[in-house]
Design a protein around this nucleic acid. Sequence first.
DNA 1: GTAGGGTTAG
Length: 615
Amino acid sequence: MNKRFPQNAIFAPATSLFIPHSQNDFFHPKTKGFLIQKLSESTDLFLTKLLHTLTLKLGFLSDTFTVNYIINSYVKLREINTARKLFDEMREPNVISWTSVISGYNNMGQPQTALSMFEEMNEDRSVFPNEYTFASVFKACSALAESRIGKNIHARLEVSGLRSNTVVSSSLVDMYGKCNDVETARRVFDSMIGYGRNVVSWTSMITAYAQNARGHEAIELFRSFNADSTSDKPNQFMLASVISACSSLGRLQWGKVAHGLVTRGGYESNIVVATSLLDMYAKCGSLSCAEKIFLRIRCHSVISYTSMIMAKAKHGLGEAALKLFDEMVARRIKPNYVTLLGVLHACSHSGLVNEGLEYLNSMAEKHGVIPDPRHYTCVVDMLGRFGRVDEAYDLAKTIEVGAEQGALLWGALLSAGRLHGRVEIVGEASKRLIESNQQVTSAYVALSNVYAMAGGWEDSESLRLEMKRSGNVKERACSWIEIKDSVYVFHAGDLSCDESGEIERFLKDLEKRMKERGHRGSSSTITSSSVYIDVDEEAKEEMVSLHCERLALAFGMIRLPVGSTIRIMNNLRMCRDCHEAFKLISEIVERDIVVRDVNRFHCFKDGSCTCRDFW
DNA sequence: GTAGGGTTAG
């Protein structure tokens, strides 16, 4: 029998390492080192299995230290079941064995199992979680967005005395952020000042703000990070979050500064960063810049395609969005439910109603995405916008939804009913909305109006009183526009700006041009404020809000000639029957951006920003 | 000397 190890590829490069030559050598301490080294390097399942077998033959399977390496090798290769089996066979798993498997479940997208293992570990009594374990467990809680469990484990962490650890605390900040408890996230973040924060801690907190619609605080914190002399430089994780905050705020200037930082940091080729940039440009109104970013992405993902499809859909370019979807499928990038939402939005916002229905009916079979209530809501909205209210209602009735999504579904139908003067549908949708218990003011107002119209004045009055008692009062709607580096806010109903006469003339001109292009007028066409007489309260507010968006646009365009800085914010969106207006506006704005950006893009005083090349 | 945290579309 040949006592030597076979001279194959596994052993060949290891000349500097110990190579066993005799039976006794198998048990030489260096053999273990050799196995461990190979296990930690392995990126191949066959090799790991071979090393696993070798470990068994050499009698090292009872050695916790060595087995941990095998477990981790399987975890890296995403063979979680094999790792778990090996773990279950261990005589004395230590905290590292437990943590490795918990982390493995996290990596496989099985946070629930990760948490079950953590509970099992706590029952064991012979082994105790450490900082590594807590960090992994909070990551599982983040993935589940389950604050009840997270808080419970946080309490255990405090008792354990392991909280003064940057990694554990950062994972806590992230966990609270993902559970929408931003205040607690901030408290943990503030408490970290005693033992140090790093770029990950800051990113966790910035992300907590960015993902909870608190973009201004995200940007403010990013500024503090940059001002803090002990901080590192922002990296791709932080920049992606910051750019996302700029998108949600529609602040193009800030987004461009972040783009400059991306360029300077060398992160432009990072797919996540690039996707966040394209989304930012699209949401800040610049579809052409978004497209430039998109075309520069070398290795596309489902998210980059979905973002671009969404961008085109929101800008009223339905057919272009659908073309992009075809391209994506042809490139074998598998669409997911968000992509299909984008496709349906594209149909909805461009009047491609039959195409939209076709996508809904074939998406499961053709793309393996089963339509969920969000897709149906989108189609209900689409049918409603284009007057097919009965079909919308019939479809809505067949959909089983939870309260939150139900509010969106019936809200869409409520709008449709109101838009097309269908009192009975408004009544039904309002009732369903109120039943959903989602504090939707519009439902109370609409139902109250339905009662009033039917002569049920007492019912109407009591409903309004109930609304006031419950404090169910909607925030005042507003629109805003960024001009140079200032933001102008327009509140619904506030038509008092100095230029109102000029704006009025501009709107009339715009309306005329829309008519020339064959646009059909409707209740939400650009009009003067006088049309609001005899419109119900809620509809009036909605219309004023839409009107103000146009005021904002008009304001920017009248005040500033082409070539100066105009920026439309992300709440500029397609609304019913206004495609033509939107196209006109987009044309003007897009042209303006190009002129402006070629000449005026400065990110840094030192001139080191290469972003100019981009333009 | 083995295990841990942060990013993008909706």
